[in-house]
Design a protein around this nucleic acid. Structure first.
Length: 403
DNA sequence: AGGTATTCACATGAAACTATTCTCTGAGTTAGG
DNA sequence: TAACTCAGAGAATAGTTTCATGTGAATACCTGT
């Protein structure tokens, strides 16, 4: 019986000792190649042990460079030491990217309050009341309060700058407690286009997390694989390749770990006793594939319509065997046809232009602005979806659009 | 031939409009005293 | 009477349209040799 085999192998032949080690949520007890940053952060925050307010701190670096991990690491140690030293210290971590948790001013305050042990209704209260409730709670005893805003750029896109600004100015209103803010962002340009007042108050100190290089990634993987996999399952070469893959993607450690985990899962499913080189390739494809499919599926209808039009046009071009270059105008015409056919409302060219630019940002298409001289300026568009998932993508689109 | 001016087909920006979701207020309701 | 609920006014927000302006180079048009 085939099923039995599957279940049997799931029970017996697992390659992992502890898969969670490779998951993002895992907190290792050492963080290789981040000593400098960790020390820096620690030295900035150290004054809390003397009961002084530390400077506000701003961290940036691309995804998967260990920002969150390092901060949490320092946070835990610091809390421990503060307890020993008898300092009243609170450090709260908030991820602004998680919608429903903290992507509006109100919600951020609400989460903070609930972490402080208070409670507010999920909705219905005026924001300034929540605000004063928060102040009240913080100020009820002498303490240092450090708030960590992860992915702060996400929040500030939606919320007005002066929320953070007023948070930083809050100290003057507090008599007993003191507040410090740690902002984490993976968009380096983010600080440049916000209110300068916020910039200077938030960025009293800055720490940059550079991307890992291939060798460092290799170290990290090595370390984790020792705990995650059984012995002899993963070869040196496999780790090296995995590191190389991730290093190409701006040194994203998260990516490297995902790759490793999925490669492990795939080879386990195959009943292999080792994680082979080929599984890294497979895993890479799978990640890519899942990412693309996920994007296509979750984008709004108008995006799907545009993407569908682009795919249709590519097909037509191939049939007629002309070069597969297409321009905004072509796409718009095709899009209009598709809209009438599917009875969707048709947006302006202006909007489609923006949508095309956005799909470009998502990496599904390549849209380059070129000038064709007398024949105007336009975008030259080409889709980047690899052939082996084209059918799947199309199926999703057809399904989603009710064609 | 070489230089300048035009012109195309959109790109890019700003402002206004619209529909939907959130916030906030006060009236009405409930339960306990 | 205090607490709670809930409808509807008003504000915030996202997505879009309208209007306006900008852009790079192939091409048309000169100009003097």
């Amino acid at each position: 019986m085939k099923l039995d085999n599957i279940f049997d192998s799931a029970l017996k032949d697992t390659l992992f000792t502890d898969k969670s080690v490779l998951q993002i949520s895992y907190k290792p007890d050492k963080i290789p190649h981040r000593d400098e940053q960790i020390e820096h952060v620690a030295s900035i925050l150290a004054p809390v042990l003397r009961g002084e307010r530390p400077s506000n701190l701003f961290l940036y670096g691309k995804t998967g460079t260990g920002k969150t991990l390092s901060v949490k690491f320092v946070k835990d140690k610091l809390i421990k030491r503060a307890e020993e030293a008898g300092v009243n210290l609170r450090i709260e971590y908030i991820n602004c990217k998680l919608q429903k948790v903290a992507d509006t001013e109100y919600r951020i305050l609400a989460t903070l309050i609930s972490k402080l042990g208070g409670s507010v209704p999920a909705t219905g209260l005026p924001t300034d009341q929540v605000y004063s409730r928060f102040i009240e709670l913080v100020d009820e005893k002498k303490q240092l309060f450090v708030i960590i805003f992860d992915e702060i750029d996400h929040a500030l896109k939606k919320i007005s700058d002066n929320f953070i600004y007023s948070l930083t100015r809050l100290n003057s209103e507090l008599s007993l407690a003191q507040i410090s803010i740690i902002g984490i962002s993976n968009d380096i340009t983010f600080l440049e286009n916000i209110d300068p007042r916020v910039r200077s108050s938030l960025g009293e100190e800055e720490v940059v997390f550079p991307p890992y290089n291939a060798l460092q990634l290799q170290d990290i993987l090595q370390e984790r694989c020792m705990d995650a996999f059984k012995e002899g399952v993963v070869d040196e070469g496999v780790i090296a390749k995995c590191a190389a893959f991730a290093a190409r993607e701006h040194g994203d450690a998260r990516r490297a770990l995902d790759l490793m985990r999925i490669a492990g899962e795939l080879s386990e499913r195959d009943g292999s006793r080792k994680v082979d080189l080929k599984y890294i390739d497979l895993a890479n494809k799978k990640i890519e594939r899942d990412k693309v499919l996920d994007i296509v599926e979750t984008e709004p209808k108008q995006f799907q319509l545009v993407l569908y039009s682009i795919l249709q046009l590519t097909k037509e071009m191939k049939k007629k065997n002309i070069s597969e270059k297409m321009f905004t105008g072509d796409v718009y015409n095709c899009y209009q046809d598709v809209c009438t056919k599917t009875k969707n409302e048709c947006l302006t060219q202006r909007r489609i232009s923006d949508i095309i630019a956005e799909i470009d940002m998502l990496g599904l298409i390549n849209a380059r602005v070129i000038s064709k001289g007398r024949h105007g300026r336009t975008r030259e568009i080409k889709h980047l979806i690899s052939d082996n998932i084209l059918d799947k993508v199309e199926a999703i689109l057809v399904d989603g659009l009710g064609l």
